[in-house]
């Protein structure tokens, strides 16, 4: 059965203009997310996965340029002006920002920050706004929503802040949620709270999700499909089962071996600089299987099964 595609990204390139040259953070990237699906976007820090999310939302820094096509619910986002993008942000595409402890304004009451999101989604009047906020917070399992509304963010714990942020995302009727590193720097207890939050969100909306993370375990726990990024490009895409049981790309296999439960074996070398990318496969100088071909020619994505794609000459 063919399910509806929510987001289809084709040939996306995003680069930053710096005095040292162009930093290409996202390179010729194709991916799509179907309705109700959770796509995990995995990669190490600096591989461009957050930039991908920011490109979709058009909240990139001013020195960034992005080209290609981003089709969201049948409409092209690429040419849209900021003003038109604002109609989509917070309404159609919700975001759970990274680092919840800094994602709320410390000097503004939670109430006001939630109301802003509600105001953006329509014209609820004073009392109605409060009722709606309370409903949203209850959905996020807050026991005393009134108290949360009246207090300032510093009185909330990290997990609570994240649930407040998720409640803001819920107030529209989003068909896509982008969660950027929701578990970064969190301890085990808060992390399980976050997973719970995301699952709550999913239950409440049935929305598609793009989950940006470098936490492999977390991704395999919650995602339907996983895309792995390395040095600005996708190197392997597949269902969660395929990625976990049958990883093909040497980098992904290396990632699994580097997990604590598999013996913490590091991958030799470091990721290439995004300014001077190597010729050929971007992983070749760290790859044990690398051949002459890998050094010279850049591999394309190739399908190994209907749902599994990989970018490697020697799979």
């Amino acid at each position: 059965m063919q399910t509806e595609t929510v987001l289809k990204i084709t040939n996306l390139n995003t680069y930053f203009q710096t005095p040292d040259g162009n930093v290409s953070a996202v390179c010729e990237l194709d991916i799509e997310i179907k309705k109700g699906e959770i796509l995990g976007l995995i990669g190490e820090t600096g591989c461009g996965k957050s930039v991908l999310g920011e490109s979709v939302l058009k909240v990139l820094p001013y020195n960034a340029i992005s080209t290609g096509s981003i089709v969201f619910e049948g409409g092209e986002l690429m040419g849209l002006k900021q003003k038109q993008m604002r109609e989509i942000r917070g309404r159609k595409i919700a975001v759970i920002p990274q680092n919840p402890s800094e994602a709320l304004n410390p000097l503004v009451k939670n109430k006001k920050q939630i109301y802003e999101a509600i105001d953006h989604n329509g014209k609820a009047k004073g009392m109605e706004k409060k009722k709606q906020s309370i409903r949203l917070l209850q959905k996020m399992h807050f026991k005393e929503p009134e108290k949360v509304l009246e207090s300032y963010p510093h009185r909330l714990s990290g997990g609570m802040k994240q649930r407040v942020l998720a409640a803001m995302g819920l107030c529209g009727n989003p068909s896509l949620l982008i969660a950027d590193e929701p578990t970064k720097g969190l301890d085990a207890i808060v992390r399980s709270q976050v997973i719970e939050t995301l699952m709550l969100f999913k239950e409440n909306t049935g929305t598609a999700m793009m989950l940006i993370t470098h936490d492999l375990n977390f991704a395999t726990k919650v995602c339907n499909r996983i895309a792995v990024m390395y040095a600005g490009e996708l190197i392997e895409v597949g269902t969660c089962y395929e990625i976990f049981k049958n990883p093909i790309h040497p980098y992904l296999m290396g990632l699994f071996l580097a997990q604590p439960e598999n013996g913490l074996i590091p991958i030799d070398g470091v990721s290439p600089s995004l300014i001077n990318l190597p010729q050929g496969c971007r992983f070749h100088d760290r790859c044990k299987k690398a051949s002459e071909k890998c050094k010279r020619f850049h591999p394309e994505m190739k399908k190994t099964t209907l749902t599994h794609e990989v970018r490697c000459w020697n799979p």
Partner: peptide, 17 residues
């Protein structure tokens, strides 16, 4: 470049707001 400004942006607020 702080987190809460990013939140406000993705919430759909304009730069002036």
């Amino acid at each position: 470049s702080s987190g809460y400004v990013y939140t406000a942006r993705v919430k759909g607020l304009s730069e002036i707001q």
